[in-house]
Design a protein around this nucleic acid. Structure first.
Lengths: 300, 300
DNA sequence: ATCCTTTATTAGTAATACTTATTAATGGGC
DNA sequence: GCCCATTAATAAGTATTACTAATAAAGGAT
């Protein structure tokens, strides 16, 4: 055994690539949808066939050997290429197929993405969309995610950003209960005396400095308060419970303003926002499915 | 099914590449060492998974569809790369492994190649050598053969040629029976009156013009006779049976000259030959096994 | 030292890949 | 034009393999 190790190992080789990249049998197994045991056996079999050790593994770490490193570098991206080509091939089908992965916040899914994509899902039953709700920084290139949706300001280079959805109006609100105890602010500067619910930026780790504007005058306020979130949903909840002033796109408060559960302040200072952008790597060649999704999202 | 057609099809994809390249399920099956039926089912399964037709096939021909053509172009050489890398990886093993394919004439195998390679075979049990005895022109690049052995004159460009074995002395011989009926030639020009056993060149389709030399004077004779071969073995046999004069490297006549079964003539006109050359593509990166074989053959 | 996480192992099972045998279709030879 | 040889498709059965579930062993972290 060993003198015809040429082929037939292709699936095992692919397994190896995934394990080596993730550095973990367990994570690789999750990614591939098999058990960790299957991978363990596959790698063992591969190493036996090649008669060379590819991964040095303890119960705590998995790292490629010299040979494994070399093999990974040499063949890893070939498998990527093959996978990409398979995706691309679907554009020659009658109906395009494939999975499009999008990372975004949770609110935007219901408010914008799902409505816009409903027709795509119906029209192309072989197109799948995976949403990855993630408030932290997401490297969509490294994680092989097709696109991300974030507020307009933060756009990496090598990324194409297209606006989706309409302009957003920011709104500063708090509950009637809160304003019963605290005076309403008249200018952004008054906010320094208030209990403001902070939001931590996903991309860079900093806190969001609330941005105001009136008659061309721009004012950024570093507010303070007892609560910090990185999810807008919980900010709304906290505001409803009277825990402070929240500052978010007005949409996110839903019916609460109209119902009187939340009261807008500083309305004349609240700027219109360019809104959400979809961004995706300019270098990667888009799959047919992604092209369709992109077109649908571009529609205003 | 079909919305996760991403991977797991790798072996089938490789099968597809081979079938598409050979243009035949049967030949591809022989090459892969499986039955034609296995390939037929694998391709069917692949096409079902991708939901796209890759090969249009009648009972008489197999040719790729548009999608198949594209897929073949896109991923075919990736599989080659992967295979090459697997071969190359063996140089990191304790013992190199792999198969080296050599095309050559039959005589050289016993006279030169096997003696020189005997130690390699013993020392590296995981190295295999496949000899392809072939008198016709062989495109070692297209047929993925590692190297060829031919007489020195014919060297393609993009080929590296290294001399193996010693100089050869040509010899013109015939049987005693023949010379009992015909006068021995004294100069090459006399050969025109003789029944000379011709050899057809493998590379270019022409007949070999016998090359003589004496005191710096070179003489090429287009001889004539009743027999033409493209294998030296049969030329020797024919000469032994008194069917004419043969002109070959002296070695090829073995013991027959010493035994008196064949008689040398024109000895002073017979030149020393540069001998056999091993040639191999300069562009292809040599496998570890081939490096070892090459080293062994270079030794004088 | 203990617990938690991660890989290795074992045994059993489900899945599939392959073989053999046969059929259907096609093109070339006569 | 007909037949034969060749080739791909199909059917059914089997052997192989790939995978799962459960458990053990090992290494870090606290």
């Amino acid at each position: 055994m060993g003198w015809w190790m040429i082929k037939q190992n292709l699936n095992e080789l692919n397994y190896f690539v995934i394990v080596a990249r993730t550095g973990s049998f367990t994570r690789a197994a999750a990614q591939l949808g098999v058990t960790q045991s299957a991978l363990s056996q596959a790698i063992r079999s591969l190493e036996a066939n090649l008669d060379i050790r590819l991964l040095t593994r303890t119960t705590r770490s998995v790292s490629p050997t010299l040979a494994g490193e070399r093999l990974l570098n040499a063949i890893g991206h070939r498998f990527d290429d093959i996978e990409n080509e398979l995706e691309a091939l679907t554009e020659l089908r009658d109906k395009p197929a494939g999975t499009v992965k999008i990372t975004c916040g949770d609110f935007i899914i219901q408010s914008t993405l799902l409505p816009k994509l409903a027709n795509v899902l119906k029209q192309y039953p072989d197109i799948n969309i995976e949403f990855n709700v993630n408030y932290g920084y997401t490297d969509i290139v490294a994680q092989r995610i097709d696109a991300g949706v974030r507020l307009g300001e933060t756009i990496d280079k090598d990324m194409i950003a297209v606006p989706i959805g309409k302009e957003l109006n920011m709104a500063a609100v708090a509950s009637p209960e809160y304003f019963a105890k605290h005076q309403k602010p008249n200018t952004p500067k008054d906010l320094t005396a208030h209990n403001c619910i902070n939001i931590r930026f996903p991309t860079h780790g900093g806190l969001y400095a609330w941005e105001f504007e009136k008659e061309g005058e721009e004012l950024n306020v570093n507010v303070r308060g007892q609560l910090i979130f990185n999810t807008s949903h919980h900010i709304v909840e906290a505001a409803l419970q009277g825990l402070g002033i929240a500052f978010l796109p007005e949409e996110e408060f839903g019916e609460h303003i109209k119902n009187g559960n939340l009261i807008k302040v500083l309305a004349d200072w609240c700027p219109a926002f360019p809104g959400y952008y979809l961004y995706y790597p300019s270098r990667r060649q888009p799959s047919p499915a992604f092209k369709i999704v992109l077109e649908a999202l571009k529609q205003q």
